[in-house]
Every structure is written in C-alpha cells, then in structure tokens.
Write a protein that binds this DNA or RNA. Structure first.
Length: 748
DNA sequence: GGTATGACTTAGTATCCGGTAC
DNA sequence: GTACCGGATACTAAGTCATACC
C-alpha cells in the first residue's frame, strides 16, 4: 500500500473499493482475474416458474406442479462472462447521494428477481463473483471518567483499561437476572481476574467477588442512558446519520455483479457471554475480535479491502462453495461466527425456497412413511423399533432431532437425546413429556399416543434403565437421517417440522370463512398461526407490562358492563312491564353488587381527577409559554368541582339503585345503546383473549421459518387482506419471491 | 460407526422506533 | 412535547446436518 493511501481513513479507503474502482462496472466486466471458471452441478436442479412462463390456459404452472421443474440437462461449464450481463440499472451507483425517493426507486429497480430466472440453481457453487468491503469493527474501548470506579471492600480500584472494560461489562448487568446468577458471577470473576493478571494487576488484591462493589459503575451507565434519552431530536439525528455513514460501505456487496445486502456486517463486540438456561459458561468473557482473527471470503482477484490501520487480516479465501463473506473464531465454544448475506438476498431466498419445496415434496411420501414406521414399531430389532418410535415422535409431536451435547453446554434435549426422566407413562396410553428443549425452553405435554408407541416407550424405560439413561440408546440423528434419505431425497428430521407446520397452517386456513372485516380476518389468520406456533412449542417470556395491560382491559370491561346495566335499569324505569316480558334480558342487572359498583365508580372518579389535573398543568404551561397569567389553585378547585358533582351523582345512584334518566331518552334508543355496548364488550373480550392467548406464544418464529410464505400470500389474495397486515416490511422483503410467484390457487 | 469440524437455519431476547394519549 | 407501549428489527445463542477423517 502506498504511503499516500495510508493517510486515507479506513472507512473512506474501503469505501473506494466499491465506490470508485468498481462503480458502474458489472462484475462480468471486471478484470479477467476476478472472473472465475465455474463448474455447476446439474443434478436435481430446482427452478421456479415465473409469471412469464404461463401454461396455455394462462394459469401459472406453479399452482399445479409445485414449481418443481427438474429436467436434467447436460450443461457446458459456465464462466461469469457467459452469463447474462446485469442491466445497467442493477449496477452499483454511489456518486451523488440519491434522494430518499431515488433511493426507493433504485431499490425497486435493483431487486434481482432470481425466481424469474430459468436457469437451474442447484449444486456446490454458490456464487460466481463476490466483491465486498470487509467488516465493521466495534469502536475501541473508551475509559470511564476518573471518578467512576469499581470498589473493593470500600477501596476504589485503579484498574488498567483492559480490566476496567471487563468490569464495566458486569457493572452494566448487575441489576439483571444475569448479574444475579451465581454461575454468571463466578465465570465473570474468573475471567476478570485473568485479564487483570494479564495486564499487570492493580492497587488492590482482589480475591472475592462478594467484595466487589459495582454501584458507581452501574449508576454511571444508567446516567448515560438517561442522557441519551434527553438528547434533542437534532442530536439524535446527527448521531444516527453518523452511524449510517460509517456503516454504508459495509451494508452491501456485489454478488455476481449485483448489489446485495449483507446481514451482520458488524463484528460482534466484546462482552460477557449470555448463555441461555443453565449454561455452564454463562458470564465468561467474549474477547474482542481483531482483524488478525478474521478470514475474508471474496472473488479471486477482487480487491482485498484494507484492514484497519496497523492490522492485517487473518486470512483471505476465495471459496465459492460457501455463502459467508467473513468469519472468525469465538472463544466461548471455540466455534465459528460468520458474516452472511441479508435475509432478503437471493442466496437466502433461494435456500428458503428449496427448504419449502423439500418439505412440500414430503406430502407425496408421508403416507408410506407413516405406514412403514407404524409397521416397524413392532420390529424384532430393538434399533428398528427405536427408529420407528423416534420417527413417530418427530412426525406427530414435532420434536427436534436432539443431537448429543457436551458437559460445557446447557443440558437440553431433543428426541434422540431424551432421557428416562423426561418421559412419564400413564396407562393405558398417556405420555407426559417434560424436558428442556432448544434455548432451554420447557416442553411439557400430556398426550395420548399410539398403543404400540406406549408399549415401546415402556420397553425403552425397562430396568436396568434408570434416571439419567438415554431412552433411545441405539439410535442417533445421523442414523435417523440416513434412514429418512431412503424415503425421500433431502428428507431429514427437521423437514418433518417444516412439513407439519405448513400443512397445519394450510388446514387451519382452509377452515376460515371469507367473511367479516379485514381486522377480523387478520385475527383468524393469527389464530391459525398460533396453532402452528403451539405445535412447534415456540414460546416467549411474558412481557413486564402484560399484567398491567390485562388489568386495564379488565377494568374497561367492568365499566362497560356497568354502563350496560345502567341502560337496562333506565329501560325498566321507563317501562316496568318490560321485565316480565323478557326476564332473561334483564337478569344481568343483578350481576354487579353494590361493592362492585363502588369500585368501578371510584376508578372512574380517580381517572377523571387525574385527567383534570393533567389538563390543568398543561394549560398552565401553555400560558407560561405565552407569558400570560397562570391559572390559580382556585381555578383548579373550580375544575375539580365537576368531579365532585359526578361523585355526588354516583352516590345518589348507588343508594337508590336508579340512574338518572334524561328527558329525550326512549326505550328504543336505550336498546340500541345496549347493542352498541354489547358489541364493544365482545370486541374487548376478543382483544383480551387474543392478548392472553398470545402472551406466552411467539408467532414470529413459525411465520419466519416454518410456514411456507406462499400460504400467507394465497390467504392475502383470496381473502382480500393486504399483505402488509400479514407480513412486516422485513418479511415482505424476505418473501418477495413468494409474494410475486404464488397465485390464488396455490396449495402447499 | 463414531467424532470433529464447518456451515448453515432456527430461536428468544434486547433494543429501537414510531404511533398514541395526554 | 413527552411518556408510554407495543410491534419491528437487530443481535447472537443454540440448534441441525453434511462431510471429512480415523
């Protein structure tokens, strides 16, 4: 690198790789060294039919043949330059920052519709050319102000910078569940002491975690949060724009000459490992990643982005059989972390499409698979019997495969790793599953199973087996998957989950009638989604505000109920004979006791008081701003008088049991008001039920990973529900291929 | 056949951000 | 204008599975 280049800030230098040198140059026109001869595998190719390839009757083939088109063609080896050159509009532009509108247009123009391509896309080669600007490193550590210290036994500790950073990681978490977890504390403390030792120690001998006092650090971080909140809009905007400017070069890359988004272009910052569940390593220090730890992957001959000043890359690879752009080794589990394409990239889209097509293909085999494993449940061979039983559990209860786990990981299980204690048998054929699955999420289900499955599980638990022993001791996920491959190409344990999730969704959607408002249809769609989420055991922790908001809705319901009763009381006041005519209609008048009513009235009064007080404050602030005379305490008293009047009315009503009737009121008018309130009650109850039902169920995971997006698109089209109501912006981008390729008649 | 490795998908949670009520 | 709430997004941990190697 020339010295003049050295003077250019890293951000600008790397930006130039895409912006200057390759700007407006399609990859196919790059120097020949960039182009790479590509050998494509042609076996079992998958491609999508696109709207242009209609059958003679004008309907898309996708609805009838499942979009799979696999004529094996002998293909000659292709080089990138043989491929169709991208449109001018697809080339990366960067000079003159485009306006927001231009950006949007550009976005639309640049979207590569891979699903409209005719070519086969299977095989080992994942890309023909890949050019990118490397990765974004987290900022260097900024030392704390000198007055913010860690204390040990009351003594302020002068920590070296490296150790202060680690202490700060903990300091920020002291009040969280992690910070209070003894394993987290102990792991942190060991690593903290190690770092301290590495950088030469400090003024105090630190021996016990219990003597550490992080309160000053914690207060400092809290203050920083507060300050951030208090920043003006302008300041916040500037910071955001700065951040975006810095990230810009790393957001996208050139994949086969087309601009594509990158997902996690940021190297993970150092911190304390937050393992889920009872993870033995939770709290360990995740060390800072340096360029020397990072391997880049890009086209041979493509310009290698310069590493940050004074550093060099660990390695630079040119492997087009993988889809990562950069990787590094992390120090907790000693595994790799990858920088990959974004969810809406062609690479991810194609992979998603293939996943759903494989799952969809299972429908042609599922019947014979079920027949086969039902037979094998009675096999003489223990291994076969275990295989059949495990397949049954994976198919029917959507269990994961359940690979072996080490002692240095959380103790979680799936099907093959189920142990004696995870399954309880209750004759004649009830099985109680109780175990921690992925992410230490509890799987608890009491289910009735096939009689032979029950028998088998009983055999698998027979002595000398005891708690701690594997239920399925003769099989493993690789063995299961090997067997699955004999049923169908590409079939593995996880495909059953995708298949059953999408099949369930389709069945549920089929039950929905095309009636009601859009909002009602969305609620029904979500209910179908929820069935799938429950099948897959997708949970979430109840939000902190959940109890509060449920309480609010319940209060609202009681208030509505009271109002309805009052209206009915008024009706009887106007025409007492009504009660004899329709006793059922008026029966609910007795539903609320005097105490109930008092509580409701108090809540209303309280709320009204608060409203008046707040309005008073606001008005005063307004007057102050206009330099006018302030409202006085007397004014407030006057305003509060109205609340007092209301209170008096309530009191009279409570004593007499008769609400005040206005002159113009008629029985008919009251009846219509009752109907209105009843509708509101129904809506509110519906809203409450939805909230309760969803409080512990996470719908997003199944929508994102398991439900074929084309099902959602079909629902949207058939039921006239805008796709925006069913997919967020991110999901619409991720599933553009589905939105543009599935028609009304598509079936999973 | 078992284990290690590497590359990918799936997953829950933390944080951001925009709408709404006041 | 602000505080609050909830949905959307970002982050990264934790799975699955193919392949290589012995």
């Amino acid at each position: 690198m020339s010295s003049s280049e050295d003077d250019i800030p890293i951000v600008q230098r790397s930006k130039r790789i895409l912006d200057d040198s390759e700007d407006d140059v399609p990859i196919s026109q790059l120097p020949s060294s960039v182009k790479k001869k590509v050998k494509r595998e042609t076996d079992d190719s998958v491609s999508l039919n696109h709207p242009k390839s209609k059958s003679s009757n004008g309907t898309s083939k996708s609805s009838s043949n499942g979009n799979i088109k696999t004529p094996k063609k002998e293909r000659t080896k292709k080089t990138p330059s043989d491929k169709k050159k991208p449109n001018k509009s697809l080339q990366v532009k960067s000079e003159d920052k485009p306006t927001k509108q231009e950006e949007d247009e550009e976005e639309t123009e640049e979207t590569y519709k891979w699903w409209e391509e005719q070519e086969d896309r299977d095989g080992e080669i994942k890309w023909d050319s890949l050019v990118h600007n490397g990765v974004l490193f987290p900022p260097e550590y900024e030392p704390l102000p000198s007055h913010v210290k860690l204390y040990y036994n009351g003594t302020p500790v002068n920590l070296p910078q490296e150790a202060e950073e680690v202490a700060g990681f903990f300091g920020a978490l002291v009040e969280t569940d992690h910070g209070k977890n003894p394993v987290f504390q102990s792991n942190f403390f060991k690593d903290f002491q190690q770092v301290l030792k590495e950088c030469g120690g400090c003024n105090v001998e630190i021996e016990k975690f219990e003597h550490l006092d992080f309160s000053k650090m914690y207060a400092h971080f809290e203050q920083l949060k507060e300050d951030k909140k208090k920043m003006s809009k302008e300041e916040k905007r500037e910071i955001k724009e700065d951040k975006e400017r810095q990230e810009e070069p790393y957001r996208t890359c050139l994949l086969n000459g087309r601009k594509e988004k990158i997902g996690n272009f940021r190297i993970e910052p150092p911190g304390l490992f937050r393992g889920r569940g009872a993870h033995p390593k939770t709290g360990r220090l995740k060390r800072r990643v340096f360029p020397e730890d990072v391997t880049l992957n890009l086209s041979e001959g493509a310009p290698v982005p310069p590493p940050p000043e004074g550093h060099s890359w660990g390695d630079v690879k040119h492997d087009n059989t993988v889809t990562w752009l950069a990787m590094w080794k992390e120090n907790i589990a000693d595994s790799f972390k990858y920088v990959r394409f974004a969810q809406n990239s062609s690479v991810k889209g194609l992979s998603d499409f293939k996943k759903f097509e494989t799952a969809r293909n299972l429908k042609h085999h599922i019947e014979s698979i079920r027949k086969d494993y039902t037979q094998s449940l009675k096999s003489e061979l223990m291994q076969e019997r275990q295989m059949a039983t495990a397949t049954y559990l994976i198919d029917i209860f959507a269990l994961r495969a359940g690979g072996e786990k080490g002692d240095d990981e959380a103790d979680t299980v799936g099907c093959c790793s189920l142990r004696y204690e995870h399954v309880t048998l209750r004759p004649p054929n009830t099985v109680i599953f109780d175990f921690l699955g992925k992410d230490s999420i509890r799987f608890y289900q009491e289910v009735e199973v096939d009689k032979q499955v029950f028998k088998n599980l009983k055999i698998f638990k027979k002595p000398p087996k005891q708690p701690g022993d594997d239920l399925f001791d003769r099989i493993s996920p690789p063995l299961l998957n090997k067997k699955f491959q004999t049923y169908m190409k590409g079939l593995t344990a996880k495909v059953f989950r995708t298949y059953n999730a999408s099949k369930t969704m389709q069945d549920q959607l089929d039950l929905i009638k095309n009636e009601g408002t859009v909002a009602e249809k969305v609620v029904r769609f979500n209910a179908a989604n929820r069935t799938v989420a429950i099948l897959c055991n997708h949970q979430r922790t109840v939000s902190k505000s959940h109890g509060n908001s449920v309480q609010k809705i319940n209060d609202k319901l009681r208030e509505l109920m009271w109002n309805k009763i009052r209206l009915k009381q008024m009706m009887l006041e106007l025409d007492p004979k009504l009660k004899r005519k329709d006793p059922k209609y008026f029966a609910e008048i007795e539903d609320l006791s005097k105490e109930d009513i008092m509580v409701i009235q108090e809540k209303i009064l309280e709320r009204t008081k608060e409203q008046v007080a707040k309005k008073f404050e606001r008005d005063n602030e307004k007057l102050k701003a206009e330099s006018k005379d302030q409202l006085t305490a007397n004014d407030l008293k006057e305003r509060m008088q109205k609340v007092k009047e209301l209170q008096a009315e309530f009191k009279i009503e409570l004593a007499s049991g008769k609400p005040e009737i206005k002159k113009s009121v008629t029985v008919e008018k009251l009846k219509s008001q009752v109907e209105q309130i009843e509708q509101r009650i129904l809506n509110t109850q519906f809203q409450l039920k939805d909230k309760e039902d969803n409080s512990e169920v996470s719908l997003g995971t199944s929508k994102m990973n398991y439900i074929d997006p084309r099902l959602t698109v079909v629902f949207s089209k058939r039921f006239d529900v805008p796709i925006e109501k069913l997919f967020t912006k991110t999901l619409r981008e991720k599933f553009t291929w589905a939105i543009e390729s599935a028609d009304k008649d598509w079936r999973f």
